[in-house]
Amino acid sequence: MGQAHDVLERARAARLEGRYEDALRDHLWFHENALAVEPGLAGVRLSFALRDWIYLAEQFPLARRALQGLRDRDTARMLTGGESRDLFRDIVAINSALGEERATQDLFVRLDIQSPELAVQCADFALPALVAAEDFMLARRYLGDPAARVQALAANLNAYTGELVKTGGTSSAPALLSFVLNYAKEVRLVVEVLRRQDEEELAEQVSRMALDELKSDALRDAVEREFETPGVTIKAMVAHARANVTEH
């Protein structure tokens, strides 16, 4: 493991030992410098690292204020000429970790007015926050062609599943379940936007297409179960993880 990964582990250890200022110092360094040192940590930086930061904030309120400060700084950059899709993704991830999706919606509304071309590039990241804020009119405007969107999502899921079949890998089951979960979430988002805009017929068409476009019966069944009982896929992921622990 590299330097950045070590810093994140050190932050975790410091939190568990009650050395909260040290943990915050390492979280700040990791967020600002990790990608320059280890570009492969891009996903970790906006997921596990932020999750750990929020754990720290629950015990050390200064950590929450520090994270909000980073968000506010990056938001100002977005609105004063430093616009980029990557920077918007950072802001969205921080707002999601903080439970402040309304801040994402507020920023996107301003981008829609100030930089509409960039808003198009950032729309995918903004859509969940727009739905959470019930700004369905703006969400629908940036949703594009719902059928084409679902077809593209299904194609990605089919391709990933096809690769698993070729390699015969069973260890990738958690990743596949994660893909299924994300696919179902994306489709539900599209359907909700359409229904809230009184496009019921198109919503029904997209819902059927989301299943019909899947090539594997097993995959179709898994997605349909998640549609019918949201959360069942997470339970399957937890069960798989526990089984692996038991086996080892």
Score class of each variant (00 low, 15 high):
48 F>E: 14
143 L>E: 07
217 D>L: 05
204 E>S: 09
214 L>R: 02
93 A>H: 06
243 A>D: 15
146 P>Y: 14
97 A>S: 06
179 F>I: 00
232 V>D: 13
150 V>R: 14
148 A>T: 01
195 R>G: 06
66 A>Q: 15
235 K>S: 04
237 M>T: 04
65 R>H: 13
93 A>Y: 08
132 A>C: 06
210 A>C: 04
240 H>A: 05
224 E>N: 11
26 D>C: 11
108 F>D: 01
20 Y>A: 02
6 D>P: 03
151 Q>K: 15
40 G>C: 01
169 G>Y: 01
26 D>V: 06
79 L>Y: 02
211 L>I: 14
6 D>S: 15
223 V>N: 06
9 E>C: 12
15 R>I: 07
241 A>W: 05
160 Y>C: 02
177 L>G: 15
236 A>S: 11
74 D>G: 00
38 E>Y: 05
101 E>A: 12
27 H>Q: 10
22 D>V: 08
87 L>E: 12
124 D>H: 05
109 V>K: 06
230 P>I: 08
92 V>C: 06
140 R>A: 12
31 H>D: 13
109 V>Q: 14
20 Y>W: 11
102 R>T: 06
94 I>N: 01
5 H>N: 03
169 G>M: 07
54 I>T: 08
24 L>M: 09
77 R>G: 02
163 E>K: 08
40 G>Q: 13
130 L>R: 14
152 A>Q: 15
183 Y>T: 04
42 A>V: 13
102 R>P: 00
61 P>N: 10
220 R>M: 13
28 L>E: 09
182 N>P: 00
64 R>M: 13
18 G>Y: 10
236 A>D: 09
138 L>A: 04
218 A>T: 11
240 H>F: 03
2 G>N: 15
59 Q>S: 14
117 E>C: 00
51 R>N: 02
44 V>C: 13
169 G>L: 13
134 E>C: 02
121 Q>R: 15
140 R>F: 04
6 D>F: 14
136 F>E: 03
194 L>D: 02
124 D>Y: 03
185 K>M: 07
41 L>G: 04
32 E>H: 08
126 A>W: 07
241 A>C: 02
248 H>L: 12
144 G>S: 10
182 N>K: 14
183 Y>Q: 09
50 L>P: 04
39 P>I: 12
201 E>V: 14
